[in-house]
Nucleic acid binder design. Structure first.
Length: 317
DNA sequence: ACCCAGGTCTAGG
DNA sequence: CCTAGACATGGG
């Protein structure tokens, strides 16, 4: 395959990034067309479909190697096409020096050790729409299960893209969801969803198609406004809104508080919380603590400690 | 069987 | 304002 490359500086680890639980569609497609989440291919490349295009990525100390049938990518939140190299730099956030972010969040040994352990982890700039739908599926599901469901949805409702002898199922557009809403609601869809969840998702895609919800227009808007607009939708609560803000709308101060982050807050920072009104049950109180403590890149600190918690090594940090 | 998984909504105090 | 229970479902 024709592999091109761009400088990997400062160093980004695709392994640590794609396994961090922020994204669900990076893995490998095997010869039977099955998707294996969180594993790269035998040739060292990760398979992904982002912003509607197949993309294969590999990283070493010096370069990011890529392969894609696309030479340009449309980025809806920028409302413009980017050359594939510029797109990869945008997607991997290569415009913001990772080392500077790491330095700013290194407030204690826990984060410093987590950074050492997961060095090169970055927060991607995912497509807002796909991020919304992905996290609307996330409640009470494991990362692996979410990945399975999103793959299943893509096969059932989206287009497929042949590339390099593999089939890449593209995440369905909002129009795909509406067009095939009957099969989306159909119980034959292998990995089922709750009826309420389906209705909530269809409501979101409907207002996107009808132009009533300018999700991409939220890119660059103030944090609080983004949260306020997102939580108006049923099925999008405070935590999912923070995930969308952090993982797709460039709000690195967003700190999604899930079960892991609650545990982290209790175990590591309980003594720092001070006068806690309702302890870790108070979402605003806890996420404000993270922002006060870690600063403008608090979302990065959250992601590093979240990884450590998932891997069960929190207390060894 | 029981508990958990990147939560949210609703009803009822 | 607050809490308990429902929601769905495969894997440990």
């Amino acid at each position: 395959m024709a592999k091109k490359r761009i400088l990997n500086k400062p160093f980004i680890s695709l392994d640590n990034t794609f396994r961090s639980g922020q994204c669900f569609r990076w893995g490998r497609y095997d010869e039977f067309g099955n998707f294996v989440f969180g594993e790269k291919d035998t040739d060292g490349f990760w398979d992904g479909i982002v912003y509607g295009i197949p993309l294969r990525l590999m990283s070493d100390e010096k370069y990011i190697y890529f392969d894609s049938p696309a030479s340009e990518v449309y980025v809806p939140q920028l409302r413009q096409n980017l050359d594939i190299k510029d797109f990869i730099r945008f997607y991997l956030r290569m415009d913001t020096p990772l080392d500077q972010i790491y330095t700013e969040i290194s407030k204690d040994k826990y984060v410093r050790n987590a950074i050492k352990r997961y060095y090169g982890l970055t927060i991607l700039r995912q497509e807002p729409y796909e991020t919304v739908i992905s996290y609307m599926i996330s409640p009470q599901n494991s990362v692996e299960k979410i990945a399975q469901k999103l793959n299943e949805i893509s096969i059932s409702l989206g287009n497929s893209f042949s590339f390099g002898g593999k089939e890449f199922p593209v995440f369905p557009t909002p129009e795909d969801f509406l067009k095939k809403s009957e099969s989306f609601k159909d119980k034959s869809l292998k990995l089922r969803f709750g009826e309420r969840q389906k209705e909530n998702i269809l409501k979101v895609v409907k207002s996107l198609v009808e132009g009533k919800f300018d999700l991409n227009g939220l890119f660059g808007k103030p944090y609080q406004r983004i949260i306020n607009e997102l939580v108006q939708f049923k099925g999008i609560g405070r935590k999912i809104a923070d995930c969308v803000a952090l993982f797709s709308l460039d709000k690195l101060e967003a700190v999604p508080i899930d079960v892991h982050v609650k545990r982290i807050t209790e175990k590591l920072y309980g003594s720092l919380l001070g006068d806690k009104p309702r302890g870790v049950k108070d979402y605003e109180f806890v996420s404000n603590f993270w922002r006060d403590y870690f600063g403008r890149y608090a979302g990065f600190a959250q992601e590093f400690l979240y990884m450590a918690s998932r891997d069960g090594i929190l207390l060894t940090l």
